[in-house]
Design a protein around this nucleic acid. Structure first.
Lengths: 218, 218
DNA sequence: AGGCTGTAAGTAATTACTTACTTACAAATT
DNA sequence: AATTTGTAAGTAAGTAATTACTTACAGCCT
């Protein structure tokens, strides 16, 4: 009985702590991600972060010695936890079903960025504001993805299926279509009447790209 | 003589004013364009602007009642003075030489943004930071260009030369390739060893796009 | 007792913006 | 021609608010 009660109480406390307070550290990070991605580094104040996280402002500086430190921590976190695009490529690479491969890549990118726009916004803010980690951000995503895809394209050229175009530039063509749509959507808020049909858009992109790059011997 | 001298003197004064001081108004705007495009609205201080323009800080507020007013003024200036892409389309539209048309569009965009990166950066900062004029920026460029190109594509579909794909989505495909390259180059500073060959890149983009969109009846 | 978590109050610096005043110069008036 | 007036350009000094960051202290848990 008494043990039961004790456990109940402990549970309740734990639940409270977990619900209302969670981890102070995490709540700060969560709030910071929200605000930095919405308004950038210079547009966000530590007071605001504290209010959003419902945490005393001084606590921020116990967890992160500097506002810039906190910003860096966020970027590193985002870099580490994003699963990346490689899965959708690897999943279908061996099938050599090009339409499947490129459709999967585009779908994945649209879906991921639609679900978490903060990532794209953080990436852009860090680049514009010239944060130190911006380069790592860039290398991890832009260059890495281009490398993966241009490798795949290279393979397909050697298979005789794709034209002998520069694989990197070809990769840039496809990634550009997808990424620019994401940017227009998430950064510029292309809302208005234009309710984009992402299924049709993806099909159009893949159709144009594949028909444009495949070698002309049926 | 005396009138000559007076004129000379007036001229000299005018020249001095025009050379060393130019127009105070213009010097402020010039400095603001530089700084806002480099560091964004929140990252730029009025003191800095004054120092860069070599003008007393108080003068900024005689010309623009508010820092935000100044920001709005430079965005409006940039919107009004950019010549736009339509010229390169109209110049070749009637030729119906698709390769010429799309090569001209891409070349023009690369060249324009390479010559004045501040435009792209301002556009992105204003979008991210949510400036009021960001929408106008967007409508004037992104939507307008997409409209022009999708109109052209529509024509070519009716000519039986292009596939019956959604013209807007097809336009987005081509613009996406080009714009994303510009962004990667100018915002993320893709410098490193990747010295992009813009001639080859443009050819690759146009080749993929045109072969991808043209109807398959030779 | 001592090490966490939390907080209220404060600090020095910086911010956008103002004030009160001077100078320069041309048009209007005498 | 000389003097007044009007107007814009310029400046040094200041303001009130906000900024990132600190300190000193209080409870709490083991």
């Amino acid at each position: 009985m008494s043990t039961d009660k004790a456990i109940e109480k402990a549970d309740a406390t734990a639940r409270e702590t977990a619900k209302e307070k969670v981890n102070t550290h995490d709540r700060i990070i969560e709030a910071a991600i929200k605000l930095f991605s919405e308004k950038g580094f210079n547009g966000t104040t530590t007071k605001e972060i504290a209010e959003t996280a419902e945490v005393n402002e001084a606590l921020i500086f116990r967890h992160f010695s500097t506002k810039r430190d906190l910003y860096g921590a966020i970027i590193e976190k985002k870099i580490s936890e994003e699963p990346g695009i490689e899965l959708s490529l690897e999943a279908h690479r061996d099938s050599k079903d090009d339409r499947l491969v490129f459709t999967a890549i585009a779908s994945r990118m649209f879906e991921k960025c639609g679900r978490d726009p903060s990532f794209m916004r953080l990436l852009h803010f860090s680049a514009l504001e010239g944060h130190d980690l911006s380069d790592m951000f860039f290398d991890t995503y832009v260059e890495y993805i281009n490398m993966l895809i241009s490798d795949y394209i290279d393979t397909r050229i050697k298979d005789g299926e794709f034209k002998k175009l520069n694989p990197l530039y070809s990769s840039k063509a496809f990634i550009g279509m997808v990424v620019n749509q994401i940017i227009v959507q998430e950064l510029f808020g292309e809302k208005k009447k234009n309710k984009t049909d992402y299924k049709e858009l993806t099909e159009t992109f893949v159709e144009i790209f594949l028909e444009g790059i495949k070698s002309g011997k049926p």
